[in-house]
């Protein structure tokens, strides 16, 4: 069973980290990724650039509209994700809780949709 762990973080906190703090955070994420890999649970994972570097695209009635992002007006924004493969939701929630993001932001756990079902 695959789950997406969507990482929602306060970008301001992230951007105001000094070099040492940033190094520490990177170290925590690396360690987390490694433990996912060692457990055989890691499928994929990507960090994202801050939401202000992205864009919102709509194409309603074939009219393309481009807006500055992000679309969720919240303090925390999607900062990256992991795709994991584990037996059930309890295992997914355990991994989510261990993610560095869970201690400062929010980790959303969402099952991957197997369209055949």
């Amino acid at each position: 069973m695959q789950y997406m762990l969507a990482l929602y973080e306060d970008e301001n906190v992230f951007m105001n980290l000094n070099e040492a703090e940033m190094g520490e955070l990177m170290g925590a994420y690396n360690a987390y990724t490694t433990s996912l890999q060692e457990a055989g649970a890691f499928v994929a994972g990507e960090p994202l650039e801050p939401s202000a570097t992205g864009a919102i695209i709509r194409n309603h009635n074939n009219t393309m509209q481009v807006q500055d992002g992000p679309f969720v007006e919240a303090k925390e924004h999607l900062g990256g994700f992991y795709l994991i493969d584990v037996p059930d939701l309890d295992a997914a929630l355990d991994w989510a809780a261990q993610c560095p993001c869970a201690s400062t932001g929010t980790v959303e756990v969402r099952p991957i949709w197997n369209i055949g079902d």
Binding site: M26, E46, P47, L48, E49, S51, T53, G54, A55, I56, I57, R58, G69, P70, F71, L78, G80
Partner: peptide
């Protein structure tokens, strides 16, 4: 809508 986000290269 679609949100476009650049993947960070560490």
């Amino acid at each position: 809508l679609v949100e476009l986000r650049k993947v960070a290269t560490l």
